[in-house]
């Protein structure tokens, strides 16, 4: 029965057709578009070879986009990977009760729309009358204009994502933490191993495949989640100081209507993502191998 090739093909057909048509074909189109100059509506599309790429590399924007992207990554990894990692350890191995209560409450923001989160935080960060500015003024501090100040905007946007994604990552990490055999930890305690030693030599190695997964989605999806508050609250501003590698593609495509350059950015972004995912799977193989 396993030699009917058309049977699995039939079961896979819907998923494969949708993926080819709406994921892989667009990637090829991006490559094709990136060699052209076009504004998306005009009937004139001009082949210009590598010019979009040359402009992209020589422009000052690329450095800004990459450095913004790194700042986003640094903040998101701290709030949505390091903090939940430590806290999930506390929940799995340092408390003995109420862990389900904490999990269910902390997960709630993950069920909300990023559009909702953006509106809430627009009010919370309102520099004149919002709650944060009131709290700061009781301490005698002036509130910055969070979404309009180049030095605060990335932090403010990242905090929205941090708030919304924290609980989800916490739960995924918690699943890995509770899977660490308790007797391993007890045995180490009997030998008077320090907490740090237990954490470093038992918890970290055993949880590393899941940790790697959460680390990767924190970056891969984090950079996309920020698109919603970016588009609703700052449009990448002020003066492109909150844009990133993923949002810039949208800006060139749908705000500046420079389709060719948008496509060139899309190709670049895809290459960065693909490279990152390849490194991830190489690392994962190593970790899983090491574990066995």
């Amino acid at each position: 029965m396993k030699h009917y090739h058309w049977q699995p093909a039939l079961f896979l057909a819907p998923a494969i057709i949708v993926s080819l048509l709406f994921s892989y074909w667009p990637l090829l189109q991006d490559i094709w578009l990136s060699f052209h100059s076009w504004n998306m509506v005009s009937p004139n599309m001009k082949f210009i070879g590598l010019q979009n790429y040359l402009q992209l590399i020589s422009g000052p924007e690329l450095i800004k986009v990459f450095s913004n992207t790194f700042i986003y990554i640094a903040i998101l990894v701290s709030i949505n990977f390091l903090l939940p990692y430590l806290l999930s350890f506390v929940m799995a191995h340092r408390i003995h009760r109420f862990s389900f209560f904490y999990r269910s409450i902390l997960f709630i923001p993950s069920t909300l729309s990023l559009a909702v989160a953006s509106i809430i935080f627009l009010w919370i960060f309102n520099p004149l009358a919002g709650p944060i500015s009131l709290l700061l003024s009781t301490m005698g501090l002036d509130s910055p204009s969070w979404f309009k100040d180049p030095s605060f905007v990335i932090m403010a946007i990242s905090l929205i994502i941090g708030w919304k994604v924290f609980g989800y990552n916490l739960i995924v990490l918690f699943a890995a933490m509770v899977a660490v055999p308790k007797d391993l930890i007890e045995a180490a305690k009997l030998e008077n191993a320090s907490s740090w030693h237990i954490f470093r030599h038992i918890i970290v190695p055993i949880t590393s495949p899941t940790a790697l997964y959460v680390f990767v989605i924190t970056i891969v999806f984090g950079l996309q989640y920020v698109l919603v508050p970016l588009n609703m609250l700052t449009q990448g501003g002020p003066d492109q100081s909150s844009t990133n590698l993923v949002y810039i593609v949208y800006q060139y495509g749908f705000v500046f209507f420079q389709t060719g350059k948008a496509a060139a950015f899309a190709v670049l972004t895809m290459l960065v993502y693909a490279g990152f995912l390849v490194i991830k799977s190489k690392l994962l193989n190593k970790l899983v191998h090491y574990e066995n």
Partner: peptide
């Protein structure tokens, strides 16, 4: 396909 950033494919789509 799950990991492809949305903006990369929205223009052709």
């Amino acid at each position: 396909t799950f990991f492809i950033p949305i903006t990369v494919i929205i223009m052709p789509n």
